[in-house]
Amino acid sequence: MTGLYVSPATGAAATGTVAFTPVPTVWTDTAGNQILAGSVEVTLDGAGEFSQALVTTDASGVEPTSGRLWRIEERLTGLPIRARHFALPTGDGSPISIADIVAADPGAVGYTPVEGPAGPAGPQGVQGETGSAGPQGEEGPQGEQGPQGEQGPQGIQGQQGPTGPQPSLGGQGAGDTIALRSTDILLAYKTADEQVASSIVLQDDDHLTLPVVANGVYALDAYLDVEADPAADITLGWSVPAGATLSWTETGISAGNTGNIGSLKQSRLDVATSSGVGIVAAGSAVRPAGVLRVAGTAGTLRLRWAQSVSSLTPTILKAGSWIRLTRIA
């Protein structure tokens, strides 16, 4: 995939980056026995160009077998971020310009053309006169056909109206608020229960992962529905892209509580620090929260967890538990 970005007024090369993210965010290469995950951000060179190899969206042996797309975010200096989606079918291996493959597919996700006003209708043509009929009795000669009226000129088609500007992240709202787009809110939830027994080693959750972009800042919150042996409880932790920082708190009851009404644990922690909270036999809710600051490397935020004390009775993170990221910068 290649691209060229220049000013329409001066022809000068644009500066900035272009990010590509697979949709859905994780593909499975069954033929190559590998998981395809994560996005890539490419910096425009001095001529305003980029070149990036991507897996085709119809490659055989890759799941899901249908519905795969690429999402492109154009982050050009001085302009709002623009996001579009496109399919990348297998071709002859020649480079493909992003201007050709996105602009040529008006049915793609997020393509919203604006129709211009209709041109005025042309005037109706003048109808020719009818020839006179012969006298009755003997059949008279057929009257001559009148001349055909001229066709009125075709109305001029209205020009297509310009696309409205996309609101940039952090635009001023009412008071101290900021304007957000739908793409600035990311949510992952558990589709099935997950169990850990006899283990205090943190492991990645099967469902609660979210992709993040380079240099993004996100507010983190979550709702975790947990059942466990009250003697085992649960320990939480996170993994983030290289260079990212995470300030977070666990927000759960302290270990040793016999009911969900008791002392609350709200430590201020960093990404390198895990922390345990109490879980009662009837089940407890845990509400982690924090702020994630991503450095120059995009990647994935992952929830990690284990038992605080090893127990044969499994600690269960229930279906419906969720994590959410809201981009704030």
Results as ranks from 00 to 15, higher is better:
G173Y: 00
G173A: 02
A174L: 04
G175N: 06
T177C: 08
A179P: 01
A179T: 10
L180W: 11
R181V: 01
S182W: 05
D184R: 10
D184A: 06
D184E: 10
I185C: 07
L186T: 03
L187K: 07
L187D: 10
A192G: 03
A192D: 08
Q195A: 08
V196E: 01
A197W: 04
I200C: 04
I200G: 03
V201Y: 02
L202K: 03
L202N: 06
L202G: 05
Q203T: 15
Q203F: 09
D204K: 06
D204E: 12
D205C: 01
D206K: 01
D206G: 03
H207T: 05
H207N: 04
L208P: 07
T209K: 04
L210V: 00
V212R: 05
V212D: 00
G216A: 07
G216M: 03
V217N: 02
V217R: 12
A219C: 00
D221G: 11
D221A: 06
A222D: 12
Y223L: 12
Y223S: 06
A228I: 06
D229E: 12
D229Y: 12
P230N: 06
A231K: 10
D233P: 04
I234S: 06
I234C: 04
L236H: 13
L236K: 06
L236F: 14
G237K: 05
G237F: 10
W238I: 00
P241C: 14
P241G: 13
P241M: 08
P241R: 11
G243F: 09
A244W: 01
A244I: 07
T245M: 12
L246G: 09
L246E: 00
L246R: 07
L246V: 10
L246Y: 05
W248T: 00
W248H: 13
W248V: 01
E250A: 15
E250M: 07
E250N: 14
G252E: 09
I253A: 05
S254C: 14
S254L: 12
S254R: 06
S254W: 06
A255V: 10
A255P: 09
G256K: 04
G256R: 10
N257H: 12
G259K: 08
G259H: 11
I261L: 14
I261R: 08
G262T: 10
G262N: 13
S263F: 13
L264S: 00
K265T: 02
K265N: 10
S267T: 08
R268S: 13
L269C: 09
L269N: 14
D270N: 15
V271H: 11
A272N: 14
T273D: 08
T273M: 08
G276K: 00
G276S: 13
G276E: 01
V277S: 09
I279E: 09
V280H: 03
